[in-house]
Design a binder for these strands. Structure first.
Lengths: 258, 258
DNA sequence: CGTACAATTGAAGGACATCAAAAGCGGTGG
DNA sequence: CCACCGCTTTTGATGTCCTTCAATTGTACG
């Protein structure tokens, strides 16, 4: 925290009183009995410095990581070093969930800011689900939501031009950000990304992202400069990105409907 | 079936004796008691003609669709008609699983060949999972596997050149196909796709896919002509696609490990 | 105040798209 | 069996969006 007026690197609203696991992830709406069960199963919190890997590509998938605070991103590397960013994770995300033990992660997870992750071993997760079936369904829910988000990006990267892709990513992050901190009505936020990150997430080069951003600034749509994002014209942005913000908000919310 | 030596449009090996739901999907390894439960919950099989939608984009997600036989693909449309194919579904796939009711599908599902889908309503699914927790975990497993596949495509489309993308898609389909019909050791198969489909799946134009395919044929890697695919040099293909076939096979298999 | 990293700008080249036309294949009906 | 039709594949010419390489400027932070 740097005494900024903008602060979105920190805690999510509401944690399990017993275990510090964010409400938004596994615990949302669970009875306090269940929460205590989860607390029993977790093996500890870990602080990960910005730029370090939470999970290295190719590592065995022994645990799931609950992102308590900070930003992270999932990425994949090609042989020759090219990098594709798959997803940006906000506090409350469940990371590294893989269907089964004995597998090796096909992607890596890197902390974008200093982050805290809460670790639950896979073997314990299985027991946990047996005792509390609704958590299995919740995992399916989270997993499927990430799948839908990945599909969204696929269409964007596969079929949209550079300007549309950048607009798409920015709007996605903006909406997901606002869902997390509903208090903030601001159209200005701190995005802990470089233009290089945006390039790696949109399948473009950092250089070209820069050119696209200047055009968007000149058109009065968005400003992004040294991690400070300002949405000037949300409607025009949604129009360029070809996103219905209502629908996106539904799909990116963290809590289950009734 | 046209009396071809190649036949991969039909049934998957082994169905639930009671309900016709393929083993590979929800039922794999379930007790016969559970199978009968699933049979109680399913609301019926439906035949979908090639080219028709199993699920239209924007439709309410009221049911999940178990693909009993045939090929289908998930797709997304942009405003102006551009299409991105998100995933090709083989027999045994669970389609249209969305985390909750009251949502509208953000993508469509179209039958590639005449197909049979088995429908289970969402409300019934919820009850089913309450009674049989392991099915919830299995849904999470399936969902997460599709997510990993989507991430794979994201890296391919975002960071690979045309030749690599096409090689990637072909190898993915080839490996997934072989996992389904382990009997077939053949490197020749019937792929019910046009080059236009490959283009829509790789973010290229059909025309350019054609040029890439001719180059791959001239290099002696693969032949694809009027839906007939022949892998000439699997190793070179894997090399171009930047895929480890072993890893891909692990991730695309249909059955849970012990 | 200096250093490291991020953003910005320019010039040149390449990969893929677009448009258009011809040829090939498969199914249908005479 | 042949002729026809629609769909798919193939090929060519031209354009453009994005990349690459390189140099400069700007910002944050110790």
């Amino acid at each position: 925290m740097k005494g900024d007026s903008i602060d979105n690197s920190g805690e999510i609203h509401g944690h399990c009183p017993t275990c510090g696991v964010p409400h938004v992830a596994l615990c949302e709406g669970r009875s306090s009995e269940t929460l205590q069960t989860i607390a029993r199963f977790k093996s500890g919190d870990v602080l990960v410095k910005a730029g370090r890997d939470v999970l290295r590509p190719g590592e065995p998938c022994e645990s799931i990581y609950n992102l308590v605070s900070g930003w992270a991103f999932l990425y994949k590397l090609l042989e020759d070093g090219r990098r594709q960013i798959l997803h940006f994770a906000l506090p409350g995300a469940v990371l590294g969930f893989h269907p089964s033990e004995g597998m090796f992660s096909t992607y890596g997870v890197e902390a974008l800011t200093d982050s805290v992750v809460c670790i639950v071993h896979h073997s314990e997760l299985r027991t946990l689900v047996r005792e509390h079936p609704e958590i299995g369904m919740r995992l399916a829910w989270l997993s499927s939501r990430d799948r839908v988000l990945a599909y969204d990006k696929l269409a964007s990267i596969g079929r949209q031009c550079a300007q549309e892709r950048v607009a798409h990513l920015i709007l996605e992050l903006f909406i997901r950000f606002r869902m997390q901190w509903p208090g903030h009505k601001i159209e200005e936020m701190l995005l802990p990304l470089t233009q290089e990150h945006i390039g790696d997430a949109t399948g473009l080069t950092g250089v070209h992202v820069n050119r696209v951003l200047s055009k968007l600034r000149r058109r009065g749509v968005v400003e992004f400069h040294y991690r400070r994002l300002r949405i000037l014209d949300p409607d025009k942005l949604a129009d360029i990105a070809d996103i219905d913000p209502q629908v996106m908000a539904l799909w990116t919310r963290q809590s289950l409907p009734d």
